[in-house]
Design a protein around this nucleic acid. Structure first.
Length: 180
DNA sequence: GCGTCGATCTAC
DNA sequence: TAGATCGACGCG
């Protein structure tokens, strides 16, 4: 990955259905300290959109957990699932419009639980802005990739109307590596 | 206070 | 195919 620029926070302050597919192919950068910065190409994401989306945590309303989803875009939303895995999300949209993008895959790391582990994500990241001071940010290097959309994974509980929405976005070149 | 279940992953 | 493992949420 050659020259790349930090993605401005205004990028995230748009409809999640525009932000999510555009995030595929961008780079997530993590500063581990001691001068170690790792960069990973984003290969798979999912969009969660508003209180009406029964697969979205904001469908439960504004709670301590979902609070940050109601903020303006560009912040980190993390939560622990199954008592073991930290799910990494990026808040999108304007203030008061709860939505977020779940990072499901980065290069060779397939699966949101493994993404959180690889990036060393924990609850301390909740609410941070995506900027170098937060040790986690997004970069753009002009790479353009073809994006394939499919239904979201693991949200059958939301009912077929929402579970069937094609709001999972995958880099086509990586698509064959993903099992459905 | 207590029971249920989850935007998952791994090992048996 | 079941077990790990715990916080959020709903009920009362």
């Amino acid at each position: 990955m050659g020259n790349s620029a930090i993605v401005d926070l205004s990028f995230f302050r748009r409809d999640v259905l525009r932000v999510a597919p555009e995030l595929v192919g961008k780079i997530i950068a993590r500063d581990f300290g001691s001068g170690l910065v790792k960069r990973y190409r984003i290969t798979e994401v999912e969009a969660y959109r508003g209180e009406e989306d029964l697969a979205c945590h904001a469908s439960k309303g504004r709670t301590a957990r979902t609070e940050v989803m109601y903020h303006h875009g560009g912040k980190v939303y993390v939560y622990l699932i199954y008592g073991m895995y930290w799910m990494l999300n990026i808040v999108t949209g304007e203030e008061g419009c709860p939505s977020a993008v779940l990072i499901r895959g980065i290069e060779e790391v397939v699966g949101p639980g493994k993404v959180g582990r690889e990036l060393g994500i924990d609850r301390s990241f909740y609410g941070r802005l995506l900027e170098p001071e937060s040790l986690l940010w997004i970069e753009e290097d002009g790479c353009r990739c073809e994006v394939v959309s499919t239904p979201r994974i693991g949200v059958a509980y939301a009912g077929p109307f929402w579970a069937n929405k094609p709001w999972r976005f995958v880099d086509k070149d990586h698509f064959t590596k993903f099992k459905s």
